[in-house]
């Protein structure tokens, strides 16, 4: 803004405080700064009563020039009476009784948007020339925009880190050979099930004759069989069920619902039947079976993973003892039987 030597106090005000209003002793607007005209609308502005245009919310004052004069120097909080009800910060400066700087008994009111400047700029289509050169409004707008850009960058970084964390967690719970969950998933899965209050079955499944596949056909054949086993376990279970490879040829299955004795027996025998189907590997055929011990969450007052694992182990042990390739559901009687085993230890196969 180019300013020649000023001739009137109004011209001075236009440069120093472009959003000021000069009121006469009746609080009628006699002069408005360039930005005030832009914001308040130039037509019909001169001659309007200040209090018709604004409501002074704080401090409480008598509507009229004397009221404004009495509040001179204090921070005014005003609101436009009509829409868009823009809020202003302001200050009133009483003019002298002699007509030297402006109308005698009048007031100069300088206005500013305060913190509302960000909305006001868009609403009233303001540019940097609309603010006094010394006004920090443009710097404030710069900061607000810079803050938004930087916050956005942080947010994107956070999202990426969050995604990476989720992927790492999933990896940590996954068995790389079979794609099933690994034993780290035991605790969280059981906790989730127990907390849900749903009845569920814990199955401990151990492959039979797997060791001989590894020994006679080699580890590649063993790996192939394990992948095939994983595939069968996945297809024979439902979406809400969880299959965990807890060791070399040991698996734990959590089955939701389907907890009746008959249903459990049916699921187990179908699993064994499918696992016994010969698996072709190169020119060779691998044959395995599986023994299963199971226990139901409903048989415990307060189901806990360690206890259920112990009982499923006992049932599995009983299945092995009874000749492998079968399923045994846990019963408390098994505990006594194991404490005095009739047939000695089961050799691993």
């Amino acid at each position: 803004m180019k300013a020649d030597a000023i001739e009137t106090s109004a011209a001075l005000l236009d440069v120093l405080c472009p959003m000021c209003l000069v009121l006469d002793a009746r609080a009628q607007i006699v002069h408005a700064g360039p930005t005030a005209r832009k914001v308040l609308g130039a037509t019909g502005l001169i001659g309007r009563h200040f209090f018709d245009l604004f409501e002074v919310k704080r401090p409480r004052l008598d509507p009229g020039a004397p009221g404004l004069r009495a509040a001179g120097g204090r921070r005014l909080h005003c609101v436009l009476r009509g829409p868009p009800r823009t809020e202003f910060k302001g200050v009133a400066v009483p003019l002298p009784e002699e007509q030297v700087l402006g109308p005698a008994g009048g007031v100069v009111v300088d206005l500013s948007f305060g913190i509302g400047v960000i909305d006001a700029v868009g609403r009233h289509d303001l540019c940097s020339a609309d603010f006094a050169v010394t006004d920090l409004a443009v710097e404030m707008l710069y900061l607000a925009e810079a803050k938004a850009v930087v916050t956005d960058a942080w947010q994107k970084l956070n999202q990426r880190l969050h995604g990476a964390k989720a992927a790492a967690e999933e990896e940590a719970y996954t068995d790389t050979l079979t794609g099933l969950c690994n034993r780290r998933a035991l605790e969280p899965v059981s906790q989730r099930l127990i907390a849900s209050g749903e009845e569920f079955v814990l199955m401990h499944l151990d492959l039979d004759f797997f060791k001989s596949v590894n020994d006679t056909l080699g580890h590649a054949a063993g790996d192939h069989v394990l992948r095939r086993v994983a595939q069968i376990l996945r297809t024979e279970t439902r979406d809400g069920d969880t299959v965990i490879r807890v060791g070399g040829d040991e698996f734990v299955l959590f089955l939701e619902g389907r907890t009746s004795e008959e249903e459990l027996a049916r699921v187990a025998s179908r699993l064994i039947q499918r696992l016994e189907q010969p698996v072709a590997f190169n020119a060779e055929v691998a044959r395995i079976s599986a023994s299963i011990g199971s226990t139901r969450s409903s048989s415990y007052a307060e189901p806990r993973l360690a206890m259920m694992m112990d009982d499923a182990d006992l049932a599995l042990y009983a299945a092995k003892q009874a000749g492998r390739g079968r399923h045994v559901a846990f019963k408390p009687a098994l505990r006594k039987a194991v404490e005095s085993p009739p047939g000695g230890a089961v050799t691993p196969v």
């Binding site: 609403r123 540019c127 707008l141 925009e145």
Partner: peptide
Amino acid sequence: RSFTLGAAG
């Protein structure tokens, strides 16, 4: 090029 103070976002 045009630049308005309140045009971001």
